[in-house]
């Protein structure tokens, strides 16, 4: 069953050196991505969901950031051992990324055609004419009306939703094996978000691309993902297939998170469930469970030691002392 693992991240640790101390943004994250699968990474701001994936792409600014330990194996080959030239050939070709803000990730001075043709020529070795044809084709695929004309426009001539479509077209233009989508719809309105999610879902299925979807929105992952990792303070606290996670969440944090979102389909007035307290500061975090100050079921041991991963069934994992004891 391990033959279709595309990307395997093992014990990744990314730390940032700051004046206040060492920020352990990602602290021992491991996960696997299978062929054609959509993996969701959920968590609140500052939990390390973006940094873990930027690390995989070797896009962490260093200094202050540093990948302290771990491996990112793309078909068994460690990305962290590659030279920067080799990684550059990887990015945009075998692993593509789309970001939250489509305005800042496109060059405002260059026409869409210039930016897309550059990527395609570099990675696919096509000549200018073919590359442009391919670019128009991709724009058509993501539903940009009149792509033959629009391809020579500048980014500011597109609306937010259209820009995100251009980003997707660009990211998929080299048939990557992995698409990392970092909050691709958080800056967009709901009706536009629905359009964009539909496109991502359809195109990646058609092209067989595996997707890592990073988001804070539980609704988005529920609709699009097969498997979900929940992150808290730099660690993955729970890992489960999408149905299990939503219908039978195990970790107290996951349970709280799911319960604290108001739901359209199950209206209820009155008080919402809420997790008391604040997310922890990840500077010089002691070796305890970072969630224990907010956890209603915290045990003594939670204050002293970080819980190891406990497997529940075949496909699920949870890091919590409640599941270690007595099982």
């Amino acid at each position: 069953m391990n033959s279709d693992v595309i990307l395997k991240v093992e014990n990744l640790k990314t730390y940032f050196n700051t004046d206040d101390g060492i920020v352990k943004a990602v602290d021992g994250v491991s996960f696997e991505l299978h062929k054609g699968e959509t993996l969701g990474i959920v968590g609140e701001s500052g939990c390390g969901k973006s940094v873990s994936n930027l690390s995989v792409m070797k896009l962490i600014p260093s200094p202050p950031g540093k990948i302290m330990a771990g491996k990112a194996l793309l078909y068994g080959e460690n990305i962290f051992d590659m030279t920067s030239d080799e990684v550059r050939r990887l990015r945009g070709n075998r692993i593509s990324m789309i970001f939250q803000d489509p305005m800042t990730s496109l060059n405002p001075f260059l026409r869409i055609s210039t930016q897309m043709v550059e990527t395609i020529r570099l990675h696919q070795g096509m000549d200018r004419k073919d590359a442009k044809k391919k670019a128009v084709e991709m724009l058509q695929l993501v539903g940009i009306p009149n792509p033959g004309k629009r391809v020579v426009d500048y980014p500011h001539q597109f609306s937010g939703g259209m820009r995100q479509r251009v980003m997707i077209a660009m990211a998929l233009s080299c048939n990557p094996e992995i698409l990392i989508a970092d909050e691709p719809t958080s800056a967009l309105d709901v009706t536009i978000q629905a359009q964009i999610l539909e496109i991502i879902k359809e195109l990646t299925r058609k092209l067989g691309t595996a997707v890592i979807m990073i988001t804070h929105d539980l609704g988005v992952v529920a609709g699009i993902c097969d498997k979900i990792n929940v992150m808290y303070a730099g660690k993955i606290v729970e890992e489960a297939p999408v149905d299990d996670l939503f219908h039978d969440p195990q970790h107290p944090y996951t349970r709280g998170l799911i319960k604290s979102v108001p739901r359209l389909d199950k209206p209820h007035k009155g008080r919402l469930f809420s997790i008391e307290g604040q997310p922890p500061n990840v500077i010089d975090l002691p070796d305890c469970c970072p969630f224990h100050p907010r956890c209603k079921q915290a045990l003594d041991i939670c204050r002293k030691k970080y819980p190891p991963e406990t497997a529940i069934g075949e496909k699920r994992c949870v890091s919590c002392w409640l599941f270690k004891e007595g099982k």
Partner: peptide
Amino acid sequence: AVPIPDPVVERKRQRII
């Protein structure tokens, strides 16, 4: 268009896009 945090409900929904 609003995504609902429940995969079973999500699969059954008809969206007006």
